[in-house]
């Protein structure tokens, strides 16, 4: 009985090793991409939270693309969303890798709040403005050899709030 179980266990182990050998890379790649996709979705929710109540995009100027975004929110506070190089991840990935940060300038107090991180593992990220009321966010995330690109547009909902005043 024990011998039978032992043989069965060895067979199962062998099969698992073979399965891992042939599918390991793909599975790892899919897992990494899935992880990146989750990160992007989470970050986009945060980005929406930062930007969607805004009154106007101050930078990039309409028609241009920049790796940072400046906008005026619903109470005129200035939000600066920018990339900063992450030395550890750059070394690990072998190419420039950034983290996305946000700083809010409180216009009433004249001071900046502490910066907070929105996303990490960014290979490239750009903000494109076609007007003052929306911004297109594009980027690529990298985790080891896996990459995941995304494209999204954020419309500022308070863009018409000052018309006619």
């Amino acid at each position: 009985m024990m011998v039978a179980f032992f043989v069965l266990g060895m067979l199962m182990g062998g099969c698992f090793q073979l399965f891992s050998f042939f599918t390991g890379k793909q599975v790892a790649n899919i897992s990494a991409r899935f992880q990146l996709q989750m990160e992007v979705r989470r970050a986009l929710v945060n980005l929406y939270g930062e930007a969607q109540e805004g009154i106007e995009v101050l930078k990039p100027d309409p028609g241009s693309t920049l790796p940072y975004l400046v906008l005026r929110d619903l109470v005129n506070d200035l939000h600066l969303i920018f990339l900063r190089k992450d030395d550890k991840l750059t070394e690990k990935n072998g190419s420039d890798t950034f983290r996305l940060w946000s700083v809010v300038y409180n216009i009433e107090k004249g001071t900046c709040r502490e910066p907070h991180e929105i996303l990490s593992g960014i290979r490239t990220m750009n903000f494109t403005a076609h007007g003052f009321g929306s911004v297109v966010v594009s980027g690529t995330l990298q985790e080891g050899q896996a990459r995941y690109s995304f494209l999204n547009m954020i419309r500022l909902k308070n863009v018409f709030s000052e018309e006619g005043k």
């Binding site: 920049l66 940072y68 600066l80 900063r84 190089k85 900046c112 490239t124």
Partner: peptide, 28 residues
Amino acid sequence: IADQVNPTAILTTLGANVPTAGIPARSQ
């Protein structure tokens, strides 16, 4: 700050407490 094209300069002007090294100002 409207005529600034570098986020580092904008951060400095606004008085943000952020290390300013490694902040890209241009798109790749």
